[in-house]
Design a protein around this nucleic acid. Sequence first.
DNA 1: GTTCAAAAAACGAGCGTTCGCCTTTTATTA
DNA 2: TAATAAAAGGCGAACGCTCGTTTTTTGAAC
Lengths: 234, 234
Amino acid sequence: MPKIAQNRILENQRRIETAALELFTKQGFHGTNIREIAEHAEVSVGAIYTYYPTKEALYVTLVRNYKAHMEQLRDQMFSSLEDIFSKSDLKKFTSEIRGYVYNHAEFWLLMYIDAIEFKNQHFAEWFHNMPEQFRSRLGPVLSKAKRQPGWCGQDPAFAFATIYLHVITYFLIEKLLQGNRHLGVSDEQAMDKFIQLLSGGLWSSHETRSLKSRSNGKAPVARRKMPRVLSMTS
Amino acid sequence: MPKIAQNRILENQRRIETAALELFTKQGFHGTNIREIAEHAEVSVGAIYTYYPTKEALYVTLVRNYKAHMEQLRDQMFSSLEDIFSKSDLKKFTSEIRGYVYNHAEFWLLMYIDAIEFKNQHFAEWFHNMPEQFRSRLGPVLSKAKRQPGWCGQDPAFAFATIYLHVITYFLIEKLLQGNRHLGVSDEQAMDKFIQLLSGGLWSSHETRSLKSRSNGKAPVARRKMPRVLSMTS
DNA sequence: GTTCAAAAAACGAGCGTTCGCCTTTTATTA
DNA sequence: TAATAAAAGGCGAACGCTCGTTTTTTGAAC
């Protein structure tokens, strides 16, 4: 029984999915037709239906494949983190996220496409419970940070999720939404300023303002004998 | 010469644009057809072409109208800010951004649609030079913050832009991308923790780590005699 | 009767999918 | 070993439907 070379089949599928990705992220799912995909992939329309029962099946397959790839990249990115909240590691981390966004802009556009044209069906859990995702991957590193003198007392997983989402957003705006240096500085400067801002906080030396209850119920105010700043009366 | 009531025309246009917005943000621009819009608006297909020369003209008109509305809302939101970086004002501000996102989810979906199906043509400047936008609207308030004792020394416009974008991102993920309490806590708790984190910083009492140059050139390192954490050697 | 808005029908092009045919590859048989 | 048959991949046209837009018809107002 004759059988076409297996890698010929895989090569055709790769070319079809690459062409589909490029066109879907340029025009949307419904804005792209099968004839264009076939032309870009240099196969016939009929050949596409050899591998994928429907146009939507092609979309679903490429989304699933890309998600798996991105999850792997994310885990690799995390595995190199050690002194997670030090400025040097934060700087390195933001640089890695930059690549994670800039080199895979099409992936993030797929997420937008899915939100609009597929009710976010295929990315529904992508952002779920991020602190817990980070604890399971970075548990020891996060615990280590928490034990260090000077740590702010916040949940390190929450802090890390905050940094991660903020940095991704920054690069998404720059890459996909024509941010065009939307914070008025270069990427590197924006990350440096963000790291400084987050490391030191808005207010220095415990001169925090309008302090009320703490979210974690533990209020280590007894350790601080700084005189309170007068409330605003103007 | 007979003439339809002017407000009847406006009412028809309002109904057409409302139906178009609802369907575009549910299915995408190309995933929505004129017949569906007509049905939802309870007008005929022909009537739509009375008011809009093309389907795309309808889209452009509704985007332009919604942007104007959102810019007005944003200015209103900013006008109530006084002690901008105090915890109480930050809390109030995040609550207002929550409404700005949750009550106008369709607007943000329009932004995604535009990025995918129209190469971000109609939102190209939405995020441009945000710190400068904030300085022009909140100059006095930002300057006031900068002069207060304990201020971190950062550019207040940059800090405010950072807060603004982070909070919008949080609510966009919750509302459009099924975040489903993606930071593991409620909206209010997430905002409280974020405000605390940003106010106090990751590290307290100037026990900052891996400190090198400061972006503003002023490095008060002389006050800190803490021994350095050993560098990684693994 | 005239004018205008709106409805409904029609038009021509484009769409996703299927079908018939061709080519290539391998197995079978003489 | 060569010829033939069978199977599978692939191509391109065709099908039936949908699409955006235009045209024709209808209804209302004056």
